[in-house]
Design a protein around this nucleic acid. Structure first.
Lengths: 155, 155
DNA sequence: CCTTGACTTAAAGCGAACTTCAAGTTGTAC
DNA sequence: GTACAACTTGAAGTTCGCTTTAAGTCAAGG
């Protein structure tokens, strides 16, 4: 009798199957405000179909190097009240382009410096461009700035 | 009377000053087997000068995207007993080149796919090349494979 | 000799993005 | 109506690359 509802709202397991994202991750995303879900009478999560696109956006954005916090901010800029359109998603994704360009540029610079630096002895000097990553934190971006040893104090 | 020793062996503070790497990080590197130090009579660390180059190597390798474990393996392949030569370091660093090339290629592919994918609707599909990062784990590499959700189980 | 800064240790903490666990509840297919 | 998969929660655990803390000991200049 309410079978039409089951076509509009999907369970966490179905979202997991369709996006390839684990249920534990989806629950985590909900806690962090990246996706939303209504509840069944019994208290189980029921996601709207456009959650699939949100989740897809999250994963692609992560590959580009955004943190979940940045992604949440981006998602928060989507219009509330109506389902986001193709143009909405396009606007968000377009912001990735410069970021990708910059990441590529940094890696290319490193590769070039590697050629000129290898074996020259400068590897131990703080003056070496390879060793001194002026812009590494900004451009390798994203994920593991802390993994690269860049704490706020370093900057 | 032992001043000549102080020219050959340097304290952790001096290594920190010269490399820009925190003493806590250097102690951590020693625990993890990335650098070695002898001890003063009072129990303080005394590093050989070539530790400076090892530390520099570690930091540059991290920028390339190697984990400390990979770096340790690389350093373990250095000749024992004698101080590594310029050629030794060159051999290790040369291995980075393909890695950098691959990282650059992946990002370029993503950029290109971004252009063709934006707004096309495929963002929500598992068939989308942007969404399905066949090689992301291998090439975005290094640092935060787990940040991208790639656990051993995924592969 | 004494002060002071540099050093020592083990253990705990951090931040990001999750996963795992335990102990139970819901939903559905037969 | 019952079995069983899928779901629920909060809390704790994981990984990586460190940093911080506490409670000291060592080394060097005056």
């Amino acid at each position: 009798m309410i079978s039409y509802v089951s076509e509009v709202l999907i369970s966490i397991g179905e979202v997991a199957d369709r996006t390839g994202v684990a249920t534990s991750a989806l629950r985590f995303y909900e806690r962090e405000g990246l996706v939303r879900a209504v509840r069944s009478e019994g208290g189980q999560r029921r996601f709207h179909r456009d959650s699939l696109r949100r989740v897809a956006f999250i994963r692609v954005a992560q590959r580009v190097g955004l943190t979940l916090e940045e992604i949440r901010d981006a998602l928060d800029s989507l219009p509330q009240g109506r389902t986001p359109t193709k143009a909405d998603w396009e606007r968000l994704s377009r912001a990735w382009r410069p970021r990708l360009d910059e990441q590529i540029a940094v890696l290319q610079r490193m590769r070039d410096e590697l050629s000129s630096c290898i074996g020259c002895g400068c590897l131990s000097l703080r003056a070496c461009a390879l060793y001194n990553p002026e812009d590494a934190a900004a451009s390798l971006g994203s994920g593991p700035r802390y993994l690269l040893g860049n704490t706020p104090a370093d900057l």
